[in-house]
Amino acid sequence: MLPDLSFAPPSRRALLRSTAALAALALLDGCSSGSGDAQPAEPTGPQPSAAGWSMPAESAPHTRTFMAWPALEEVWGDQLPGVRQDIASIARAVAAFEPVVLMARPEQAAQARKQCGASVEVIELPVDDLWARDTGPTFVTGPQGLAGVDFGFNGWGGKQTHAEDAQVARRLLDRYGVPRIRASVTGEGGAIEVDGAGTLMATESSWVNANRNPGKSRDEIEAELKQRLGVHKVLWIKGVAGQDITDCHIDALARFAEPGTVVVHRPAADTPPDVWTTASDQALEVLRSATDARGKPLRVVELVEPDAELIPAHNADFLATYLNYYVVNGGVIVPKFGDRAADDRAADIIGELHPGRKVVQVSIDQVAAGGGGIHCATQQQPAV
């Protein structure tokens, strides 16, 4: 028998309905960059040259992984303890392969250290929520070493409180002495997927959207992404606007396993048609006919979601996708949901797509019930 899920936590799969979110949403029709939020202070010194920078593939070697400790009861309600336990489990799993640095509010750092254990380094840096993929910098490498692109996180278009999270990229780069590159477009790390060989995938719904980039065309946004991330071709997928807090991030829809190979999230066979099945169908159609930056057709691999009836914690907002895995040094951290056959099948497929890496499955029921996954909660710093 399924547990009582009459309380659904604020979610990345359902628009937030808190007072703060409603106030922010009211600004969207006439928003300036950042949906009315004050933008992070610009660097006082010269920025690194735009030339020569590129974003490595996630499968390239990492120096460390950054994560964040969920801070606010107003966001998670009584789900917060369970969400924190999931984040601790992910952090420990990643730390078995590479260093993990977890950001936490000063008053919550001791609790984070206790739950995560000695293998995880906890630093005192104010955060609002756990989504380090979106709030942290997107790292790029080049002749000048390492830099971080700050895409001006604005709470996914003003849908969630983010006073601290808006400053995470800048503060983290300052702490580690990494040059900051301020992008002229607003977006999130989960809205970016690169193959490391010149190709980027993105959804129009999360970039060409007035809640992030009012007045900017797709061509203008594409030009900025190419310049900041060192890519030569952008594969645009339509996505879904207004149905979840991210406006359909690419990292829950399609991922690169390697240059030339794309993995696409697919609904279970008996899933009734809705906006999400339509988005998956459209992604599949686009990618099967696309070529990458090298002019080569893509190999497309389908990754089918688990059976919702076999997931004890499943609710309407549950992000039941295996696609939101995270590649680490020598391993891949993969979600498991309780559908043993689907969990094992997904682990086998992901393992085959990432040969030589150990596949580690982690239960993330509480994070998934909030509409997120392992990839959403992590951000890699590439080795230079």
Rank of each mutant, 00 (worst) to 15 (best):
C116T: 15
A21V: 07
A104V: 15
I221K: 09
M1D: 15
A241K: 07
I123M: 13
T161P: 02
L130Q: 09
E74Q: 09
I87W: 11
Q282Y: 00
E42L: 01
A368C: 07
A254L: 00
Q243S: 05
V240D: 03
V328H: 04
P273L: 01
A38Q: 07
I237S: 03
D274W: 00
Q144I: 00
A24E: 10
G82N: 10
G330Q: 05
G295K: 07
V75W: 11
A109W: 10
I181N: 04
C116A: 10
A290G: 10
E74R: 07
V327R: 12
E107S: 15
T278W: 00
A347K: 04
P43T: 08
D343C: 09
Q366D: 09
P99E: 10
L310H: 09
R175C: 06
I311W: 05
D292E: 04
E193H: 00
A166G: 03
T63E: 14
I350V: 12
A342Y: 08
A95W: 10
E204R: 10
D29S: 02
A109P: 15
D195E: 06
Q108C: 11
A166T: 06
L15E: 03
G190P: 06
T161D: 14
G34H: 04
A147Q: 12
F256H: 00
E188D: 08
R170I: 15
Q79W: 05
S54K: 06
V263C: 00
D307G: 00
L125A: 13
V208L: 09
G189N: 04
A320V: 01
T135N: 11
G198K: 02
S89E: 15
A68Q: 11
K216F: 11
N329T: 06
L173R: 04
I87R: 06
E222K: 03
K216E: 14
E285K: 12
A118C: 05
I221C: 07
S35A: 12
